[in-house]
């Protein structure tokens, strides 16, 4: 699913974001990427989405060579990935239904399929009856659930979440994690960057800890660990 070999990212100003990172994430895994702000979590996520290219090293995602990919192949890489951000990134002038359907529209999915798929993912996140609402009529947790619905509506093999619970209270965060668990249960690989200690410790999933651009720990059933990593 995801393979990184000797990946380093050095930004133009000379800052080393990741150095010599080797990671393999298999199909159906649920992986937390933990580390302090600036440790390299975001860089890791950006590499998977090919928002940035590594300075050196090889990356394969969904069987595609991300590094040597042509520019016009990037959209097809991203169709196999669902993304969720801390700030939801919904379109305020579109309804819940339209926000989710938008993801299908822009990849020119058949319209017949659209109605069915959107309804079914709204069921997954429990927002079927709010399909007519606009984002500003929803709570933060509900907005993030819409974002999740949008991320999975095209059936991605991998769901990438960058601090998805960063703006949510603990209880709402658990609702989100519950949805993730269900999505993971049907075989979707989940990569979640976070520094929410309680969630990581309770979920008992694989944990990859990044500190100063290096992978400092990779535990199959880990906790957040490293008290100092979240200073």
């Amino acid at each position: 699913m995801i393979d990184m070999k000797n990946v380093s990212v050095i930004y133009d100003n000379g800052a080393v974001a990741l150095e010599n990172v080797n990671v393999h994430i298999g199909k159906g895994e649920f992986v937390f990427i933990v580390g302090a702000s600036g440790a390299g979590k975001s860089t890791f996520v950006k590499l998977l989405l090919r928002e940035i290219l590594p300075t050196s090293g090889a990356i394969r995602v969904n069987g595609k060579d991300v590094v040597h990919m042509q520019h016009d192949e990037v959209p097809y890489l991203r169709r196999g990935l669902g993304v969720i951000f801390q700030d939801y990134r919904l379109l305020p002038e579109k309804t819940v239904f339209e926000n989710v359907a938008f993801a299908m529209q822009v990849i020119e999915a058949p319209r017949r399929k659209m109605q069915r798929s959107v309804n079914s993912v709204l069921d997954v996140v429990g927002l079927r009856e709010k399909y007519k609402c606009f984002p500003n009529q929803l709570s933060g947790g509900e907005q993030q659930r819409v974002a999740i619905a949008r991320a999975i509506v095209n059936d991605p093999a991998i769901l990438i979440a960058d601090e998805p619970t960063g703006n949510l209270d603990p209880e709402t965060s658990w609702e989100i994690m519950d949805i993730f668990r269900r999505i993971n249960a049907v075989g979707t690989t989940i990569v979640m960057a976070t520094h929410d200690k309680t969630i990581v410790d309770t979920m008992k999933k694989r944990v990859i800890a990044i500190n100063d651009g290096h992978i400092v720990r990779d535990d199959v059933r880990g906790g957040y660990g490293y008290e100092d990593a979240d200073k």
């Binding site: 989405l49 016009d72 959209p75 991203r78 169709r79 196999g80 993801a103 822009v106 990849i107 095209n154």
Partner: peptide, 13 residues
């Protein structure tokens, strides 16, 4: 930005 993330082609955008 959203269009890019969900994989819309450049021309579609």
């Amino acid at each position: 930005a959203i269009m890019k993330y969900v994989g819309a082609t450049d021309w579609f955008i």
